[in-house]
């Protein structure tokens, strides 16, 4: 529950930065904070207190005499599998956004969003 509240607050802080700040790098920092918050929210969805990680390397985790794993001893592995790839995609998307910032700086020698007014109407 604590992790749920913390991740929600992280998402809000990131969203605030992305909405209010005028510096392009600050906006992207806000987006990356939001990314961390979303990942933590998804991970904390699958966490059940007192259970172990979904790596079955001990005989005690099986039901007796079978190859079936005892479900009541392991946390949910599905959110972890989803977040695992999301982090790697996140770094690639952040790098892409930053390269756009570098290109924009090379045009106007500025990374303040107020200096880019050509598309304003």
């Amino acid at each position: 529950m604590v992790f749920f509240a913390a991740s929600l607050l992280l998402i809000f802080i990131g969203l605030y930065a992305a909405l209010v700040k005028r510096n392009l790098i600050k906006i992207i920092i806000g987006l990356s904070i939001m990314d961390t918050g979303v990942n933590m929210l998804i991970i904390s969805l699958g966490f059940v207190k007192g259970r172990t990680a979904p790596i079955i390397s001990l005989k005690e985790l099986f039901k007796k005499g079978t190859w079936l794993v005892d479900v009541s001893k392991v946390v949910d592995p599905l959110p972890q599998a989803l977040v695992l790839t999301a982090i790697v995609i996140g770094v690639a998307v952040t790098a892409m956004a930053l390269s756009v910032v570098i290109r924009m700086y090379s045009v106007k020698k500025s990374i303040e969003i107020d200096d880019f007014k050509e598309l304003k109407w």
Binding site: I43, A53, Q80
Partner: peptide, 8 residues
């Protein structure tokens, strides 16, 4: 790590 997700 506390949330039992060592891979992540």
């Amino acid at each position: 790590l506390y949330l039992q997700a060592p891979d992540v």
